[in-house]
Simulated assay, not measured.
Amino acid sequence: MKKVSVLICLFFAVITNTAFAQLNTPAPSPFSKVSQVVGLTEVEIAYSRPAMRGRGIYGDLVPYDKVWRTGANAATKISFSEPMEIEGKQLEAGEYSIFSIPGKNEWTIILNKDAKASTAQYDEAKDAARFTVNTQKSKMDHESFTIMFSDVKDNSAAINIAWENTVVQFSITDPDVDEKVMGQIKEQIPNAGNNDNVYFAAASYYYENDKDLQQAAEWIDKAVEINSEKFWVMHLQAKIHAKLNNNDKAKQAAEKSKELAQKAGNADYVKLNDKLLSSIK
């Protein structure tokens, strides 16, 4: 009897292990995430990446002029940590699904408020934005479906969708970057005390965005007064004073920045200062 009980236990153990056994194999359309800070906003795209595998894609596997989930498996999703502007369309912070209607010469790109929607569940009434973009032919085939960021600037970037030999691109913009940064400067500068990083960041933003250079000079001079051992800070001081035609002060700052960069073993800043010194008359 005892032997029979043991055999029964072994039988159920085998059945149980078989029922729960799983093979771990490569996914035909592996999941991927790509993220990018655009302006001051975190943008993330989550999608699955089907491959060509010798198949014709647009007009065949992916029909023209029909709503497509823009990838494989679950809906492709895009999320923004702050309100954003896509091709001139205003969108609130949050998560959206990306659908598209591919055509031979142009695509309709759709951002839908239902982030979990599938093609079968797609509801046009929930569209948050819709716009058209022209197709571009790439010089090479993209074997795997790819979504990527490019042309990243201070407050904008481009999103590219590429597969087979077709690429579509659209713009994404953080529309309130300047307002946000100026608000931070207004709030933090009066309370900066001996925080040279705040003065440096404010001066850098003013210099890079063609704002009040006299004010930028005051802030960068304050940063150097607090800490005169940072070669990158002194290099900015040299650039600001050179732009204001304060050539003596610019040369002095550039020479000091070069000396500090040499001590730190930073060849890039040595070259930058040499180039700046050669441009100052």
Rank of each mutant, 00 (worst) to 15 (best):
A201E: 13
S171G: 13
A158R: 08
P50K: 10
Q262F: 04
R53E: 15
L91V: 09
M140K: 15
W68V: 07
D274G: 07
F99M: 08
Q237N: 14
K243E: 09
S118G: 09
Y207P: 00
E143P: 07
N227P: 01
S97K: 02
E208Q: 11
T146V: 02
K211Q: 11
L244P: 03
V67T: 12
Y269I: 07
E85N: 11
F131G: 05
Q136G: 01
A72C: 10
N155T: 04
T119I: 06
N209R: 13
K239V: 01
V14R: 04
L7Y: 07
A72Y: 11
P26I: 10
A253D: 01
V62I: 15
I226Q: 07
D114A: 06
A72I: 07
W68N: 09
A253P: 01
I226Y: 03
A115H: 08
D60W: 10
Q215F: 00
I109A: 03
D210M: 05
E92K: 15
N191V: 15
E85G: 04
G56Y: 15
I280V: 05
Q215N: 12
K281S: 14
N195C: 09
D174Q: 04
N105Y: 04
F20V: 11
Q22N: 05
K153W: 00
S144L: 06
P83V: 03
F149V: 00
E259D: 12
I280F: 01
Q262K: 14
M52Q: 14
A19P: 00
T41Q: 09
S257K: 06
D196K: 15
Q36Y: 00
Q90E: 14
I86L: 11
E124K: 15
A120G: 07
W68G: 06
K66H: 11
L276F: 02
N246G: 01
E95T: 15
Y47E: 09
A254I: 06
A128W: 05
I45T: 05
F31L: 12
T25R: 13
Q215P: 03
E95V: 12
P175D: 05
F231K: 06
A238G: 03
D151E: 11
A264M: 09
A115P: 02
